[in-house]
Design a protein around this nucleic acid. Structure first.
Lengths: 198, 198
DNA sequence: GCCTTTTCTTGAACTGCGTTCAAAATACAG
DNA sequence: CTGTATTTTGAACGCAGTTCAAGAAAAGGC
């Protein structure tokens, strides 16, 4: 019965990640407790550390799933809109990003809250997911700025993503923006329309 | 000798905030320890809780100082540049913001990392400092968009601040940007020049 | 099938932290 | 100077992540 151990371990990993996702979505990553997680997954606290290095690793696993969903949501927002002008597509993607953040606030926050421990290697799935997200932004940006070389365009892609991220981030933070959520969409559109040359 | 108690308490408060500022600047707010702080300030751990409600309150006090410095740095960056075109002044302020964040990364992060506990009242100094920061941004924005009404202009001010904040935030986060710090200035300039209509 | 070895699971114990609290020290009023 | 009020103290509390020795389960050889 070789491999049964592997299967058990994999099953436990999955149960832990699922339980963690539910808890993070409901209470935020900061409220995740090892003992709660063990209870949810039906194992002892110690078993967690057989399946994962530490709690942070579980949050990272959840972040991986979240990032996949976020990428899919952004991509879906411009599927079939290839004929629209580039500025419009940028706005569509940004709104998809905003709505994902609004509807999955705790999961979305967990992706950015996690201080990468001791600057160790960024996981490979992270860079992959990020690249495919950037690739979606790169298409309209390439159309808007056909004169820019690859390096400048890549910089602009990251700048636009960061700018929209900043608007969403501070927009959801009540204390800073003091702006009602429905206005955030307006802020994004104003900025992107200006950049797109109206 | 009435008031001597007050003076001692105030002195302790100040020593605690100073010690906390040094530690946060060096190790980040997450590494702040009550026992270290008590040692630095030359008091017992319990005394901290006589001067402040909890550690979070001390971090907030440090954030207040940081915010003051940040505001001063931004304001100084456009002092005497009133004759420059508005886009240029926006870039000057943004670069000042970037450089402050680069040179005081941990203190700057502490201002945004702190999850406002239980959505209780935002401190008054916070809103004041934020308003005066926004007022600086509002001047060039008003020149760039004279047609916008007050509400739209205020939205644009917040959107621009958030956008620049996002570019700085993710730019300093190595894992996301993959962009060398000297390029961040370029990203900001590209975006703001586009918005300002070149 | 049975014994040996390896591997996994368990939950009590360890460690580190913010915070509290009863006792001692200090400051103040009359 | 004496009694009361306030502050200071640091040991103790509660709660978390993580570890670890002991027991349970699986794997492998015969």
């Amino acid at each position: 019965m070789a491999g049964k151990v592997e299967a058990r371990k994999a099953a436990l990993r999955q149960k832990l990640v699922e339980a963690a996702e539910i808890r993070i979505a409901r209470d935020g990553a900061g409220a995740l407790r090892a003992r709660d997680l063990a209870h949810d997954a039906g194992c002892a606290v110690g078993a967690i550390y057989n399946a994962f290095d530490d709690l942070t690793a579980i949050i990272m696993a959840v972040n991986g799933r979240t990032f996949q969903q976020l990428g899919a949501a952004v991509e879906a927002s411009v599927a079939g809109a290839e004929a629209e002008p580039p500025t419009c597509r940028l706005i569509l993607m940004s709104n998809a990003y905003l709505h994902f953040a609004v509807q999955n606030t705790n999961l979305w926050r967990a992706m950015f809250d996690l201080r990468m421990a001791a600057g160790d290697a960024v996981p490979e799935w992270y860079l992959t997911a990020l690249d495919s997200l950037f690739a979606n932004i790169a298409r309209p940006v390439g159309e808007l700025f056909p004169d820019k070389d690859a390096g400048e365009a890549a910089l602009m892609v990251r700048a636009l993503f960061s700018a929209v991220h900043g608007i969403v981030l501070l927009g959801l933070e009540q204390r800073i923006s003091g702006v009602p959520p429905e206005r955030i969409e307006q802020m994004i559109a104003q900025v992107l329309e200006q950049i797109g040359g109206r």
